[in-house]
């Protein structure tokens, strides 16, 4: 790239723009319904401009902050519309939740292939601990004894198809099966914990997942592709989503989910 063009690109956000739209939702709708190239360009150019400002750690105007907030709220509408309720709820909570803990529907976890198989493996391990009169009340998938046990073998890479089944990583985190869009867009990898009590008829277990909702810095170079209509894919840098926490538009938060199971 010629030096002049490099300098021009580097300086592209030095001058404040006044045409920041305060209604990204309106333009997203226009792209989604009418395939409006003009609205798409306006959205992408604004994201690119704000990315440039974020990379130079510049503050955003009120209009620019509102644009980003509404963009995440628009993701809520889009997520709901496509049936990804949890991912939608998380995106909205990022800009409206003030950092408070959020509880999400446990079904998104309990119906996952890797979670179901991890629950089976953990129950086998708990039964073994109980038979050997060892403590079994609290267990998490990153427990080193559990990870070395025979029960984990069926969860490990190699014996599993990552698209249909997911697998357990070396540190005990569960990697979601890639075909499960609903879960992977809400929580891609996480530890599964369980609190178990012995009852007269067997065991009662309270399963729990707790994760942190945050985005990577610009340095990682990650970009999220958001398709609005066929041929119109909005590119949102994760670094820009992260930068929103630096300028108080968004807050990192913990989200959690719990469910109970009686078993023998």
């Amino acid at each position: 790239m010629p030096i002049k063009k490099l300098i021009s690109t580097g300086n592209s956000c030095l001058e404040d723009r006044e045409d920041i739209t305060s209604a990204p939702l309106w333009h997203i709708g226009k792209v989604a319904v009418l395939e409006s190239q003009e609205s798409f360009n306006l959205l992408q150019n604004t994201i690119d401009y704000l990315t440039c400002k974020g990379k130079s750690s510049r503050t955003f105007t009120d209009n620019e902050k509102e644009f980003m907030k509404e963009l995440f709220e628009a993701l809520w509408w889009g997520g709901k519309y496509h049936g990804f309720d949890e991912a939608a709820k998380l995106a909205n909570h990022y800009v409206n939740g003030k950092g408070k803990i959020l509880t999400i529907n446990s079904e998104v976890y309990s119906k996952s292939a890797i979670v179901s198989d991890a629950m089976l493996a953990m129950k086998g391990y708990i039964s073994e601990l109980h038979s050997n009169k060892k403590p079994f009340v609290e267990l998490k998938t990153n427990n080193p004894h559990f990870l070395r046990s025979v029960h984990v073998k069926q969860l490990k890479r190699g014996s599993r198809n990552v698209n249909r089944q997911g697998y357990i990583l070396n540190n005990g985190a569960l990697l979601v099966e890639q075909s499960n869009q609903r879960l992977k867009n809400a929580d891609h990898r996480f530890y599964l914990g369980v609190n178990t009590k012995k009852t007269s008829g067997g065991f009662v277990s309270r399963w729990k997942v707790e994760s942190l909702y945050d985005f990577e810095h610009f340095s990682k170079g990650h970009i999220t592709d958001i398709p609005l209509a066929k041929g119109f894919v909005l590119k949102l840098p994760d670094g820009l989503s992260q930068y929103l926490t630096d300028i108080s538009v968004a807050k990192v938060f913990t989200y959690t989910s719990q469910w109970q199971e009686n078993w023998k």
Binding site: A32, E35, H82, N185, T224, D225, P227, K230
Partner: peptide
């Protein structure tokens, strides 16, 4: 959309 304007995409965010 159901009236049939733009072609719909069936994902929330895409794999890149």
């Amino acid at each position: 959309l159901f009236i049939g304007c733009a072609e719909e995409v069936d994902c929330f965010v895409a794999d890149s």
